[in-house]
Structures are given as C-alpha cells and as structure tokens.
Simulated assay, not measured.
Amino acid sequence: MVAAAILASAPATAALSADGGVAQPARPFQFTVIGHPFRATSDENLLRRSITEANQDKPAFIVATGIKAQTEACSDRLYAQRRDILDGSPRPLVLLPAGSDWAGCRNSAGRSNAIERLNRVREVFYPDNQSLGVRRITLTRLSANVKFRSYAENAYWEQGGVLFATLNIPDNNNHYLPEAGRNSEYEDRLVANRAWLHRLFLMAQRRNMEGLVLFTDGDIKAHVDEGFSLLSGFSAKQDGYAAVRKQVRAFAEKYQGKVLLVDSQGEPKATPAITWRGNLGRLGVGGEWETVRVQPGTASLFSLKDADSP
C-alpha cells in the first residue's frame, strides 16, 4: 500500500512557548483515507478488509467515504448494517457520505427521495459530536450552528497544528439538477458549504495553522487550470462544482499554509499522486486506502513517500 508523506512547511517565525522559549513543532503523525469501496462493487467484505488493514498502520484517525453502492437499496436496515461495520474500527473513524448513499435513492413509486434519505443518513451516522470507532475523537459539526442544523456530516477536528474537515460534495456533479425548480437541496447545501469553508479558512489563518485538509466525495478540480470546465461544452452555471471551486481557490490564495483536497475519485489502478497548483494540492483515492504521514514544522512540503524513496 502506498503511504503518502505529508510534510507541512515550517512557519517563517518559530512560535514561543508559555515560558518564552521556542516551542517545539508538533510531533509527526499519520492518518488513513479509505476511498469509496462501493464504487465498483456491493461486496461489503472490501470495506471490512480496508478497515482492518488501515488500522494496522496505527493512524491517529481514519476517514472513510461512502456506505453503499449505487445499485444497493437505500434502506434503514442497510444503513444500520454498514454503521456497525464502521463503528467496529479500533481507531477513530470519520465518515464522509458519498453521492451513492442518498442522491440516487427512490421510493416505491419511483420518485426521488434523496433529501429524505440524506436526512436519514445524518440521523444514523451523525447523532452526536463523536466520531465512529471503538476509540473516538470529538468533532465540531456545522449542525452546532442553528442556521445549519441539518448539516451534521460537515465536521472538523485538529491534529498537530493541522485542521481537518469534511464537506458534503457528492461526485454526481454536486447533485446539481438541470431541470428548473429542482435544485433546492443543491442550493441550500451550497450556502451551508460556503459558510463552512469561510469558517475553516478563517480559523486556520487566525491560528496560524500549517495546513488545512478538506475531504470530499467529488473532485472539485480546484487544482487545475482556470479554463477547466467539469462538463465540457456546458456553461459554468451548469457545473455543480463551479461555485465551491472558485471559493476554495480564493481562500487558498490568501492562506499562508498548505491546502490539501482529498477526494474518492482516484483511478483504481493509478499510482497515487498529489497534484499541485500553488499551495493547493489534490489527492484522489480510489476504492482502496492510503496512509498519509504528517510532519509538522519541517522545511519540506507535501511529498509522496514512494516518489522520494531511492
């Protein structure tokens, strides 16, 4: 399994400790990302194996994306079954919903019940401010803000001077629907994500944090050239990622640290790599898992361990 060594750049001026001495940088640590194991199969044994193997690296925490395949039922029973699997992780596990978990769900009459199923996912997997897993970590959820009470899947936590956060941005063009009058879910979530990103970048900047890592299901393409359009031949208005991509780029340009975007859209057989655009990087993880090391206070930037090994 490929391990990515994430090396945050050292601040220009060393921080001072409470007694006036130079504070030591945070200790190195690592975390593991499980891509969407149900992108190509409904076999939950792949999820079980990924969790087991990911825990062998002894990460500080695990971030997993997706609980079911697009073809599987959107049932309460399946949701509960997958929660039990995820909750059995010995290490803390933070779940990020995938588009296949809710966006394509339909009721017995064949009508979309995506919003109802998304709300059910929130009830089952995000009932409080704790992660999943036998050992847990405390999270701060966007739902703690009364204005965005529904968005419990958006959460942040800190480790070693780095801020980590999840955003519900599914891989189906951010669940943007071209039909007129059918985008209320997309538009409401866009407002919530905009407020969330503003809060995250402001916090990272004010606390002089070395890095900010954002986990999403979809690849928003913030690391590619300005002229890129996710939907070739369509206007930016029809690109469901256009607004969030613009916002992330604008915030990243003003942020002195590194911003790493991690999504579950990596190619299954491709060698993992971090692609950079200034201080903005992207790591795509496929259906397997990747372990990422963080070494705060070092002079190096983000690098892949295999790429740098002799």
Rank of each mutant, 00 (worst) to 15 (best):
F228E: 14
E179F: 13
R207Y: 03
Y176G: 02
D219Q: 05
R199H: 13
N193E: 08
T216M: 11
N183K: 03
E185H: 12
V224D: 10
L202V: 11
H223V: 13
N173F: 00
A204S: 07
H198W: 04
E185F: 15
Y176V: 00
L202H: 07
D225N: 11
N173H: 00
M203G: 03
V191H: 03
L212S: 02
N183A: 04
L177A: 00
L212Y: 08
Q205A: 10
G211P: 09
N208W: 01
A195R: 13
I220W: 02
R207P: 03
M209H: 02
N173I: 10
L177I: 12
L214C: 05
L190K: 12
M203F: 07
E210F: 01
V224E: 15
N183G: 13
E210S: 15
V191I: 14
A204Y: 07
D188M: 11
E226Y: 03
A180F: 12
E179V: 13
L214M: 07
Q205M: 09
R199M: 14
D225E: 15
N193Q: 10
G211M: 14
V213D: 08
V213A: 03
N208R: 05
W196H: 01
E179N: 11
G211A: 15
G218E: 01
D219T: 01
R182Q: 12
K221Y: 09
E226S: 12
D188Y: 05
Y186A: 08
Q205K: 11
L231F: 01
S184F: 10
F228T: 04
R206P: 04
Q205S: 13
H198K: 15
E187G: 09
R206W: 00
V224H: 04
L212D: 06
F215W: 10
K221A: 15
D188N: 13
V224S: 09
F201D: 03
V224N: 03
L200P: 10
T216A: 04
V191E: 14
R206V: 07
L230Y: 00
S184L: 15
G218M: 07
A204R: 04
T216V: 06
L202I: 09
D225W: 05
L214R: 00
D217P: 01
S184G: 10
G218I: 02
Y186G: 06
S229R: 10
L202R: 12
L190F: 05
E226R: 02
H198I: 09
L214W: 03
Q205L: 02
N173T: 02
L230M: 05
N208S: 13
T216E: 04
L214F: 06
R206Y: 00
T216Y: 00
K221E: 13
G218V: 07
F228Y: 12
K221R: 10
R199V: 01
A195P: 06
A180E: 15
V191Y: 00
